[in-house]
Computed example of a mutant assay.
Amino acid sequence: MGRKKKKFILGIDLGGTKILMGLFDRKFGLKKTVKLEMDGNRGEKFFFNKLIDGIEEVLEETGSDLSDLVTIGIGCPGIIDIYTGTVKVSSNVSFFKNYPLAEKLKAKLRVPVFIENDANAALFGEQQFGAARGHGEVVGVFLGTGIGGALIINGHLYRGVSGGAGEIGQTFLSIPSVSDFETTRLKVGALVGRNAIASEAGFLLLRQKCPHLLEEIGYNVKKIRSGALSRAIRAGDTALEDLIRSRSRWLGVALANVVNVLNPELVLLGGGMMEAMGKIILPEVRSGIEACALKPLMKALKVVPSRLKDNAVILGASKMACEILKMTQK
């Protein structure tokens, strides 16, 4: 009897508050997704149990098992050594410090595992299948719990010397003081990410400026997610809309710096906040870029939304894992 033909590739998006898994066939047609709540601060045992449970669930629901998997590709926030599958540091999972994630999963599952920064995986997915297809000079920005960024230069992902290129969320909009708190507070991610928005929205709640958001979540700031913000804005919470618009313009100003340095042809905006409020965010980001970028560079620039949306990371990670596996098998 011949060897069983492997049919599927598994893509995993390790987000700040959720894990999204997608099972793809060998032509990258999506067969099944599973979404799990996640808390990266509950320790290694909890994390691995959650991850393995999700993998088993997505396989069981498609009548398959681990022997059907060609490979697993994972998009993970942080600085990643893609050659060893080590997470050097990640803000979303407390024990990810020089952590050999690929090695541990491979030992557990007996399946090839490849790790990439989640923003890199998302932009690679968009280049292969989505809004960045056919473009060689691209800046990708992904608005989620924080702000993730990725770069395509000369048609290829640019990771930098240490694997951390593209981290626009770690750049500054103002000159920081010597205070560590002040330094952190002035970073783009701390001003524009969903956690930053949620903090400001909490103050608006206390000042009775968001009646529709208050009706949905009460004073529980932990429930301030992109969907809740979007629904409250549609219902008429204008103070919230003003907040989202102003912070989006700030992001545009930060991106103007990137445009002036790299002169890309495309700025691609994705992530959960874009999916929920893209019609508000995108024009404001474009306005901020136009106000501060060099005019000749703007003539060649397009600012576009993600086409793959929530599936960008899982699709990009799956495709990348397959390509790396092919190279290692030559």
Score class of each variant (00 low, 15 high):
residue 324 I to P: 04
residue 43 G to Y: 00
residue 122 A to M: 01
residue 10 L to R: 00
residue 192 V to M: 09
residue 252 G to I: 05
residue 302 K to V: 01
residue 70 V to A: 09
residue 272 G to P: 05
residue 321 A to L: 00
residue 6 K to L: 04
residue 65 D to H: 11
residue 85 G to V: 02
residue 21 M to P: 07
residue 68 D to C: 04
residue 89 V to F: 15
residue 42 R to S: 10
residue 187 K to Y: 01
residue 31 K to W: 08
residue 201 A to G: 07
residue 132 A to M: 09
residue 297 L to G: 00
residue 51 L to F: 12
residue 308 L to G: 00
residue 312 A to N: 00
residue 26 R to N: 10
residue 112 P to W: 01
residue 123 L to F: 07
residue 291 A to P: 10
residue 81 D to P: 01
residue 15 G to P: 05
residue 120 N to T: 08
residue 133 R to D: 07
residue 120 N to Q: 06
residue 3 R to P: 09
residue 54 G to H: 08
residue 157 L to H: 00
residue 146 G to L: 09
residue 195 N to D: 13
residue 31 K to M: 14
residue 200 E to F: 06
residue 319 K to P: 00
residue 82 I to R: 14
residue 248 S to G: 03
residue 75 G to I: 09
residue 35 K to Q: 12
residue 196 A to E: 00
residue 84 T to D: 08
residue 15 G to T: 03
residue 145 T to V: 11
residue 288 G to C: 09
residue 62 T to K: 01
residue 191 L to D: 00
residue 292 C to F: 15
residue 97 K to Q: 13
residue 319 K to S: 12
residue 176 P to S: 02
residue 125 G to L: 04
residue 218 G to L: 00
residue 207 R to L: 06
residue 78 G to S: 02
residue 245 R to E: 13
residue 139 V to D: 01
residue 204 L to E: 08
residue 122 A to P: 11
residue 262 L to N: 10
residue 310 D to L: 11
residue 173 L to N: 03
residue 165 A to W: 02
residue 11 G to R: 07
residue 308 L to D: 05
residue 103 E to R: 15
residue 21 M to H: 05
residue 291 A to M: 13
residue 109 L to A: 01
residue 165 A to M: 05
residue 327 M to R: 15
residue 280 I to F: 11
residue 29 G to T: 12
residue 170 Q to L: 15
residue 142 F to K: 06
residue 28 F to P: 06
residue 225 R to D: 08
residue 106 K to L: 06
residue 143 L to G: 08
residue 130 G to K: 00
residue 101 L to H: 03
residue 150 A to Q: 10
residue 28 F to V: 02
residue 231 R to A: 09
residue 201 A to Y: 07
residue 86 T to H: 00
residue 45 K to V: 14
residue 102 A to W: 00
residue 306 S to H: 01
residue 189 G to R: 10
residue 278 G to D: 11
residue 282 L to G: 09
residue 105 L to I: 07
residue 310 D to E: 15
residue 51 L to Y: 08
residue 177 S to D: 11
